[in-house]
Amino acid sequence: MTSTEEIRRASAALPAPRGPLSHAVIEGLTGAPGSAVFPAVDSDPLGEDVQLALQVCYELHYRGFTGVDPDWEWDPELLRARAGMERAFVSAIADQTVGGNDIDAELDALSVEPVPAVGISAHLRASGEWWQMRELFAVRSIYHLKEADPHAWVIPRLRGRAKAALVAVEFDEFGGGRADRAHSQLYADLLDAAGMSADYLHYLDHTPACALATVNIMSLFGLHRRWRGALVGHLTAAEITTGPSAARMVDALTRLEAAPPCALFYSEHIEADAVHEQVMRHDVVGGLLEAEPELAADVAFGVQATNFLEQRLSNHLLDAWQEGKSALRIAL
C-alpha cells in the first residue's frame, strides 16, 4: 500500500458551513444521533448552503467524517431534511432541462463536438496556465478520489444484459483488479505529482457549489432506486464526453510540461472511455430500456442534468479565469 493510498483512505474533517442549513447539519453531526432538528430549504437549491449540506449528508454513505457517529447515516430526522433538499435540487434542475424520452437523439448530440472545441479542456489546451490547471484538479478531486463509487449503487437495481455490462465498465474504473490502476488512485497520484494534497476531501472548503452539484447529483441518483434510469443516463453521458476532453487535457499537460502522472490519469480515460461509450450506449442503456422501457424519460433526464450541471461549472471556471481571478471559494 502506498502512502498516498493510506492518505486517501482516511475520513475527512467536517467542513466549514456556508449558511444556516449547512451550519445546522454540520453542528448536528458533532452531537449524538437523534439529538438535532434541521431547518427546511430556504435558499437557492443550487447555491452554496444547500449544496454543501447535501454533500455532507451524502458523505455519510461513503467514508463519513472524523469524529462523527456512524449512526448518523440513517438518522430519521437528517434523512427527512435531506429529502427536502433533494426535492428542491431535482426541481431546480428540471426547471432548466427540456425533458423528453428520445434517448438516441440525446446521445447522438453528445457524440458531436463543436468545431473548434469549447469548454474547460479546450481553454487549458490552448492557453491555460498552471494555476488554472491546479484549480481544476482541486474541484474535481471531490469526485475523482471516489471515482465510480456512486455508480456502483445502481448495480443491484439492474438485471440481465444491463447489469453485466455496467459491472464490466465498473471493473475497469476500479483498475481491473489492480488497486494501483484504479482511477481514484491514478487521481491521487496526479495530485501528488502536481504538488497538491491527495487527502480525501482536502479541497472541499475550496470547492464552489457548482462543482459540488456535479458530484451531489451522482449520489442522489445512486442512493434512490427510483432514479436508477437517471444514473445510467448520467454515466453514459460522462463516458461519451470524457474521451475527447481527456485527449485535450493530455495536450494541455504536455504543453505545460506537467509531471507524467498528471497526464496518465487522462490518457487512461481516452482509451477506456472509447470502449465504455459503446458498452454503455448499446448494452447498459439498451438492456435497461429493453427490460424497462418506461424509464426512457429518466435516462434522458440523467443525460440532461449532467449536461446542465457540467455547463454551469464550466461557465463558472472560465468566467473567473478570463478575468484573471481564482474560481475557488478559497484560492490555493
Rank of each mutant, 00 (worst) to 15 (best):
A32T: 11
A182T: 10
I103E: 03
D283I: 02
A327N: 00
S127Q: 15
V279Y: 01
A291T: 08
F65C: 05
L220K: 05
R225D: 14
T254Y: 10
A164I: 12
A263L: 11
G324Y: 10
G67F: 08
A263D: 08
S121W: 07
E323P: 02
V215D: 08
D172N: 09
P39N: 03
W131M: 00
I7V: 08
D251M: 11
A94K: 12
A305F: 06
R255P: 06
G84H: 13
L309V: 04
Y62W: 14
A300W: 04
I120E: 11
H282S: 12
D180L: 12
R329A: 14
D108H: 12
G324T: 12
T2H: 12
A179I: 14
Y62E: 08
G119E: 07
N216R: 03
E277W: 08
T242K: 05
A296K: 07
E271P: 02
I93F: 01
E27F: 09
H269N: 09
A213H: 00
R255Q: 11
A209F: 03
L235Y: 09
P261K: 06
I330R: 15
P15R: 10
L235R: 10
P17R: 10
L212F: 00
I103R: 03
L158K: 00
Q311F: 07
A252N: 04
E129A: 15
L191P: 00
L328A: 07
A13E: 14
D149N: 09
L190D: 02
G175V: 02
Q185I: 14
A138Q: 06
A211G: 04
D42Q: 13
Q51R: 05
I330K: 14
A109F: 04
V275Q: 12
G34A: 03
W227P: 00
V284Q: 00
A296R: 10
Y143V: 02
Q51W: 00
L328K: 06
S314M: 04
A291H: 08
V98I: 10
T207V: 08
E271N: 10
A182F: 09
A117Q: 10
R329H: 09
L124T: 01
D283F: 10
S326R: 01
R9N: 11
L107F: 06
I217H: 06
S197W: 02
A81Q: 01
Q96A: 15
P15E: 10
A331R: 13
E173T: 02
L166H: 15
Y203N: 05
G47P: 01
N216K: 01
A252T: 03
L46Q: 10
G243Q: 14
V25D: 06
G233R: 04
A94L: 11
V279C: 06
L136W: 14
G100N: 08
A274I: 08
P116C: 10
L136V: 12
A193S: 15
R159Y: 06
M1Q: 11
A32P: 03
G222N: 01
D283K: 13
E277L: 08
W130C: 06
S3E: 14
G286A: 09
D69W: 01
Q132H: 07
